[in-house]
Design a protein around this nucleic acid. Sequence first.
DNA 1: TTGGTATAGTTGACTTCGCAAGCAATGATA
DNA 2: TATCATTGCTTGCGAAGTCAACTATACCAA
Lengths: 159, 159
Amino acid sequence: MMSQVLSTQTEIAQEHRAWIRLLRAHAALTRELSGRLEAAHCLSLRDYDVLVQLHSAPDRRMRRIDLARTVILSPSGITRLLEGLERSGWVAKHHCASDARVTYAVLTEAGVAKFEEAHVTHLADVEELFGSRFSGDEHDRLAELLGRLPLLDAGACNA
Amino acid sequence: MMSQVLSTQTEIAQEHRAWIRLLRAHAALTRELSGRLEAAHCLSLRDYDVLVQLHSAPDRRMRRIDLARTVILSPSGITRLLEGLERSGWVAKHHCASDARVTYAVLTEAGVAKFEEAHVTHLADVEELFGSRFSGDEHDRLAELLGRLPLLDAGACNA
DNA sequence: TTGGTATAGTTGACTTCGCAAGCAATGATA
DNA sequence: TATCATTGCTTGCGAAGTCAACTATACCAA
């Protein structure tokens, strides 16, 4: 009976292992990376993520709703995050001519500069804490495995 | 010049790919899993995580500080999270005889029952959204890769 | 003993983010 | 044309979590 319980628990731990590690790694890495980004550039990790997306988007702009889905944030979340970036002048609003409901978030010139400045140090940080742990093949393998996970309603995700 | 820029950007995207996917997968999965857990058992994902740790700990108790480090939460974060679990009666405080500074968080009988009840459905959810994406070998491989990532100050992590 | 430092834990102020609700514009259908 | 559902976006509110500051205890060393 006792060994029954133990073996069940062991199985449980095994099933969860990768998921638990993903949770822990995410918590530890985002805290450290966000801290460094904040200290060096006054940006949160999510701010940076938004700048990355806009920087690589056609015309450096995206509909706010698509941006929200891409970085996995609620619509209200994107409104508030962009509020900060707009106040700092990195991002501007741009109205859509063909559909009065939609607003674009556009990276400004200052935003491009800000991104490129933050990019350098952040890339080094990601390399130090994440990339350097893996060989090229392992990195690809990890990306492939993680890529199988469902992003749910994220129709516009292009990462 | 233009192709220079483009090739640099492509490299950048490649370097980031696994990390970005980890970010996205985490955001999407935690939102969904936390929502289900909340709906079915009135527990957040972190609440559940704490119950798991306590359930598998010797005597079903841990020092609050070790618990915080294990689930990657700040000391104040653990205080507030446990506040809720204590109010619900699933966790109790227990003072340490040999060191008056430390307080243990102990899983109560009700807490054990609560955990075991939530465990069943949560395990199925994790399996559906996470585990079912991988074969046994792939799961092990993913766990191994994620296990290389630094947990920073998490001295007490046993996952 | 006394003084200094480190550790465990809590609290207050603040930020971030999600949900529910609401508004305005669009599109589809009768 | 009139109606109704859908979509994009914002706002009020509340939950969760961090940091800084604080208390209390423990340990160490002169």
